[in-house]
Design a protein around this nucleic acid. Sequence first.
DNA 1: CGGTGTGAAGCCTTTCACAGCA
DNA 2: TGCTGTGAAAGGCTTCACACCG
Lengths: 223, 223
Amino acid sequence: MAQRSGTPSNARKIPGAAVARLPLYYRALLEVTEEDVDTVSSDRLATMAGVNAAQVRKDLSYLGSYGTRGVGYEVPFLLDRISRELGLTHDWPVAIVGVGNLGHALANYGGLTARGFRVLALVDADPAKVGSRVGDLAVEALDDLVEIVRGRGITIGIIATPAMAAQAVADQLVAAGVQSILNFAPAVITVPEEVSVRKVDLATELQILSFYQSHRRIKERAS
Amino acid sequence: MAQRSGTPSNARKIPGAAVARLPLYYRALLEVTEEDVDTVSSDRLATMAGVNAAQVRKDLSYLGSYGTRGVGYEVPFLLDRISRELGLTHDWPVAIVGVGNLGHALANYGGLTARGFRVLALVDADPAKVGSRVGDLAVEALDDLVEIVRGRGITIGIIATPAMAAQAVADQLVAAGVQSILNFAPAVITVPEEVSVRKVDLATELQILSFYQSHRRIKERAS
DNA sequence: CGGTGTGAAGCCTTTCACAGCA
DNA sequence: TGCTGTGAAAGGCTTCACACCG
């Protein structure tokens, strides 16, 4: 398929729902890489990612036609293609703001580093915490956030503060030039439209489960 | 609006997208409760929940017509209505499986208890961890999971194990009768259809941010 | 007048189904 | 033959716009 010519270069516009699934395919491909096969079908990827095969093909078609009919997708090739699309060909410097239970756990969580997200700063408002060490990082003062972010070229900010502090922290991250924020605080934050925010809210997730649990016609327990 | 008659009782079928927003309205209403007003408009709720006013009205209309035209929604009444719908009128007993960084943080996280989710068990496969205390709970053995879940009437399981262990843990939770699972492990888990699963995957969220960061025409940093 | 409740329109996403190609 | 790539259909969600009513 020829690249659509018209708008200068990036004519491909991937729907948000498809973007959100690329990491699942990426993970599945990493698993397949461990094996002795070099191609994988949309069917197999679908099972591994927990979605449906037509969806896999449709999603991958937004990246271009990289499969072979009758065979499947070449694993290393597709992996490379998705890495580039997701911007995972280089590491991203991250700052975690709020070093409570959650911030602490995130700082120690190997899964981030393993996937190319380098935590370069831990920041907290509490003077009692500033200076303490978590792993090989020292906790720094919230007042220095803007300076820290600029100085270390941090592009992703993780907010793990109480709800009350979230908006102020977001404002400072934005002021420092951060355009990607992952918000764990149970609060809505408002940012300029060029900034992306994703939120993760534990209580919300549990409440959604609670809804379905309550509305289920209760099945008897396994004997 | 008369209750649709036809199917026995629960004719109202709330779309999944609307269910996922009810916790946001719930939280917003709790905030409004702190104030000296007793009604709130869809406009105000929308701002607080970070959505649009028409959406608030549509979502609330699935619960019935509980607003007053020209005025808004009566706060305590609507709060009660949503609590019931979400099943938050009583506490839910929760088990956390996997007491690593994340499991530990979740166990200590006050936000869960504050919202009616009672952590009644911490379970881990590592014998070295079994017996250790976290808050006022002792870590118990994974082998006893089924027994623990049944004995304490646990209805919600939180999986905070490494990816490799996730499916086996899910199977045991299901065998013990759990029908609601919150999965933090970076793995797809398969469960019977009567079981609800919600997943939270840190790395996935960051990779989605990475995508948008990479595709943004980079703005110069604030001067 | 002001703000809800809701059909209808518009948009986005998923699924289908099959032509096309290695 | 087998599996991809993709138009087209179906389904779901969001937004609009306005009748309706306190």
